[in-house]
Design a protein around this nucleic acid. Structure first.
Lengths: 192, 192
DNA sequence: TAAAGATACTAACACCGTTAGTCAAGCGGC
DNA sequence: GCCGCTTGACTAACGGTGTTAGTATCTTTA
């Protein structure tokens, strides 16, 4: 029995690659073990089971998504920051469909490690909105609105729901434009 | 072996009830058969397998969602229609979480029966937007924007993503207000 | 070098969906 | 009213899944 030289990290990363390649549903312990060249029960030396793996995948995915949009938004402000963040969000979902799906499918959403990553994500989005004067509760509402719109778009797009032959990039631009206009107007009306 | 007096329709409706009660993931042939008081293989007399059942569930769900929002929007126009539609959309997702989840998880999204229901759904949403002057391609883009925002909100809400103790109803109202404002503005700028 | 720990293995179990083959209930035609 | 065909239930069996227990071997540590 030669050792495969695995680690918890290597297992999770192999699962992430498999998820992005063939979909999150393809991430089964049997398939993952086959990819790694070991038998299924050997995975239990690195991971406590399928749920543990999925949880770790959710953490990895949330961190990767947060990193992606942070890199895009840093150094920008206002509409420019919002647009860059939105494009990066959609790019992550397109480039990493398995990870993107995993980031909302944690078996234990209350897990502290995941909650911390989720808080970071919310913070990054919130930072991009302070230029609109949206802080405090207004900021949280706005983060929810923005996240909802972005997630909805990429989720429907990923599910193949935009079947009509009409440029989806243009639809996305209009979505962002609509949100930007709404945020600007709301900032004006609440703080005249 | 007494007959249970089942039918394809009864099986699908039992699956829908189970999905709403315990989540779509709980809808397994074994569990469904137990609920109906029969053995698992007997389900194959009514349904061609799990995929067939899921497909039928998606069709049922899409029809129910379309009916729900149509009932809410009929007889109204403008912001009133948009608001009623949005509230009905969210109410359906809240009252029927399993069905709502199923409506985007069809094994064969290209299936004609499902495609027809999906077209109906898009048409109902589009009708609610003509009052904003959004027709043709503008209308399709707007339908995508609206669906994305609504789906994203209820999906994140259903995934337990809005954890901060801040009124989600108010967040939803702001989402709808933002969209309404964006649609009104876009209608003005494209057709001065 | 010997002990200890980590890592892979085989064997076995329960659950899932699925297929094949069987058998009785219930309906229509004579 | 009887016969036969269709319908709808069943049992048995197979392959796939995740999981646990127990075992052997490699690698590191004392």
């Amino acid at each position: 029995m030669p050792r495969a030289g695995l680690s918890r990290r290597a297992v999770v990363e192999a699962a992430a690659a498999l998820a992005d390649r063939e979909g999150l549903a393809a991430v089964t312990l049997a398939r993952l073990a086959a990819d790694l060249g070991i038998r299924t029960p050997s995975l239990y030396n690195h991971v406590a089971g399928l749920d543990d793996l999925r949880q770790e995948l959710a953490v990895l995915a949330t961190r990767a998504l947060a990193d992606g949009i942070e890199r895009a938004a840093v150094g920008r402000a206002g509409d420019e920051a919002l647009t860059a963040l939105a494009l990066a969000y959609r790019a992550f979902a397109t480039d990493h469909p398995g990870l993107y799906e995993a980031h909302l499918r944690a078996p234990s959403p209350e897990d502290p490690a995941l909650a911390r990553m989720a808080t970071d994500l919310v913070g990054i989005v919130a930072d991009a909105l302070v230029a609109y004067g949206l802080r405090g509760e207004d900021g949280i509402h706005a983060v929810r609105v923005l996240r909802a719109a972005l997630h909805g778009f990429v989720a429907l797009e990923g599910a193949g729901e935009f079947r009509i032959a009409l440029d989806r990039d243009e639809s996305f631009r209009r979505l962002v434009r609509t949100l930007a206009g709404g945020f600007r107007r709301q900032a004006e009306t609440t703080q005249p």
